[in-house]
Structure formats: C-alpha cells, structure tokens
C-alpha cells in the first residue's frame, strides 16, 4: 500500500501554505497562507477517515483562529511599517536548529521500522455515535475540564485585552515607558 495521489497533493498544499506563512513579508499575507495550511490539514484529516476531527479543525482553525489572527494583526499594526526587518538577526541559527530537528525526526521515522512493513488496515469506523459515546462515557472528565478551561480562557482573554481605564490626572503617559527607544 503506497501513498495515494490525494494525500500527496494535500501534503504539498499544506506544506506550501506553512512555508508561505512563515516566510512572506506582509503579515496579512502570512495570515492568509496560514489559513490555507490549516485548511489543507483539515483535508488531510478527512483523507485519513477522521471526519469529525477534520470538520472541527475547519471550524476552529480556519473559522476562528485565522480570523482572530487577522484581527490581532489589524489591532497591532499602527506603529509597525512592515519593512525589511521581518526576520530576527538570529535567523540563520533558528533555521539551522529547525533543520536539525527535522533531520532527527526523519531519521527516527526511517530507523524505527515503521516505514517498512506494508500496513494494510481497514478504515476504522469513526461513526458519530461511537465518538459521542466515548466523549460521554470514557472521556467525560476531560470533557468537563476542557469546558472549565475554555471558560477560564475566555474570561482571561477579555480581562487581558480590555482597554485599561485612563486616569483623569493624565498619569497614563508616565506609566508607559517607551520600550525599545
């Protein structure tokens, strides 16, 4: 059993989206390329017979996180002109580290013996009924913890991002040291 053509196309689309998101200069283009990568990953999940995970990925990542990133770009754009300095001075070192990590991961995949036997497995039955039963019976405690964590994260995000009340005496400018100046 070999890799199929749809898998190759989706993998190339996902990787191209990821590379474009990490190398383009303008932030909005990066966000669009990032949503392409997320959509490609959702299609990969669908290709791997994980329908529910693929649709959740599409809803959460393409629908929510990409939009959130675009809003954050719009909210933090004022002072920054997207100039030449979009990569940090230690960029070469970071790229070398990432290449080394990829080399280690690919070596581990190649030598683990996973790549050689031809796995022939029937597609598992990921019926919605089974998923719902698993979430409600075996994984009900993690589900409740996730619900609590999402509530806490929502409250925390609102508290963090809300605009602080300005002091009437005008001391706000004194409380804002200009960083990087």
């Amino acid at each position: 059993m070999r890799m199929t053509l749809p898998f190759l196309i989706l993998a190339i689309l996902t990787l191209a989206g990821g590379v474009a998101a990490m190398t383009l200069r303008r932030l909005v283009h990066c966000a669009l390329a990032l949503s392409v990568a997320f959509a490609g990953l959702a299609a990969l999940y669908l290709n791997l017979d994980a329908e529910f995970a693929g649709l959740a990925q599409l809803l959460v990542y393409v629908g929510a996180i990409a939009i959130l990133i675009v809003f954050a770009i719009l909210l933090t754009r004022g002072g920054d002109s997207d100039a030449e300095k979009s990569f940090s001075p230690a960029g070469i070192g970071g790229a070398v580290i990432a290449l080394a990590v990829f080399a280690v991961l690919a070596w581990a995949t190649e030598t683990s013996g996973i790549a050689h036997p031809a796995l022939v497995t029937p597609p598992p039955e990921s019926a919605m009924r089974e998923i719902g039963l698993a979430l409600m019976q075996r994984y009900v405690l993690p589900l409740e913890v996730i619900a609590l964590m999402l509530t806490a994260a929502m409250i925390g995000a609102v508290i963090l991002a809300v605009r602080e009340r300005r002091n009437p005496a005008g001391t706000e400018s004194a409380e804002r040291p200009g960083l990087g100046a």
Partner: peptide
C-alpha cells in the same frame, strides 16, 4: 507506506513552524 508519509509531512510541518517561531 501512508503512516511514514504522514510522519514525514508532520515532521516537515513541525520544522517549518519551529523555524518561523525562532526567526
């Protein structure tokens, strides 16, 4: 096989993300 292909794609994606986060 498909499992190794998935692992390769995912390690490439991880490296791209790591390179972006570092640079």
């Amino acid at each position: 096989n498909p499992l190794a292909g998935c692992l390769l794609v995912s390690s490439l994606l991880f490296s791209v993300g790591l390179a972006g986060a570092l640079t």
